Simulated assay, not measured.
Amino acid sequence: MSEGPAFPYQRIRDDLRAEILAGNRAFGEKLPSENALAQRYGTTRPTVRRALALLKAEGLVVTHQGQGVFVRPKPRVRLLISGSNYRTHREAGLPGFDAQVREQGMSPEQRIRDVVTMDPPAEIALRLGLDEDDQVVVRRRTFLVDGSPVALCDSYYPADMVADTAVAQPRRIKGGVHAVIEDATGPIRRQVSHSIEDLVCRMPTGEETAELGLMSGVPVVRVLRTVYDSEDRPLEVQESIAAADSHEFRYEVRMR
């Protein structure tokens, strides 16, 4: 049985969605006015408004009071995870996120939300191999691209490893935390060797939605990365909540 013709609002939504996803409408581009769309499709402004509301719910457009409806800007970060890539950025004295965002012609920023010493969540304690009474130092940061938040990152470290270092201080660290860990003249002096990543897609919590400025219906990717030293001892667990519509992940794994 064939389907009947789509309702006018569905046709408007489908046409605009196809144009946006095909790249025929640039990020940040203003859409035609409600009057113009109503005239084009031979319908009414309330019908057009319904179609635009559906596109907004899908995270494809945003509205600015008194200005109109715009294709939602999406700073998309392509993150390449590989050993050679990591070492190249370390030798340049740059955190991997900052380096890769700059390589893509955008402006990175990491804002520190908090740095505290605390009892670890059970999952973190297990991954770090901690005993029941051990504590962690957690550095909570917001990652931004061109001024827009794209990810929340909480990094956990054994407190007895970093207690008297810059890692436990609420300030930025030149070259990132791994520069402190690998400093041959510092108190830790351990070599970062490899990491294991676990990725899960899910819908965001209300707090995550607010922190990342997510549109309704946009999922997040939870990346749980455990970093090990050259003796296979865990150094760090990073829990990142990344906006799914702002990231592309690529992993290169050398088997030998």
Rank of each mutant, 00 (worst) to 15 (best):
G186M: 10
I188S: 09
S107T: 07
S230N: 15
V61K: 06
D164L: 11
V220F: 00
P8R: 03
G96N: 09
A53N: 12
I241W: 08
E252K: 07
L152M: 04
L60A: 00
V237W: 00
H178W: 12
G59S: 01
P73F: 12
S107I: 14
T209Y: 12
I241A: 08
I12Q: 11
R171N: 06
R11Q: 09
E58H: 14
L152H: 06
R189F: 09
S155Y: 00
S84A: 07
R127K: 06
Q238N: 10
K56F: 02
E236I: 00
V116I: 13
V200N: 11
S193M: 08
R17S: 12
L126F: 02
L199I: 06
N35M: 09
Y86H: 05
S230H: 14
H89A: 13
G186A: 02
K30D: 05
D154P: 02
D245P: 15
V220N: 05
G175E: 15
I173L: 14
A6D: 14
P187G: 12
R102W: 15
D119I: 03
T185Y: 15
G4V: 05
A26S: 14
I181C: 06
A38Q: 15
I124K: 02
N85F: 04
V138F: 05
V145N: 08
L144Q: 08
P8Q: 04
P32N: 12
Q67H: 08
T63Q: 04
G28D: 00
S216G: 03
P204D: 10
Y86L: 05
G129L: 15
L31G: 06
D14H: 01
K74V: 13
A125Y: 00
S193R: 12
P204G: 07
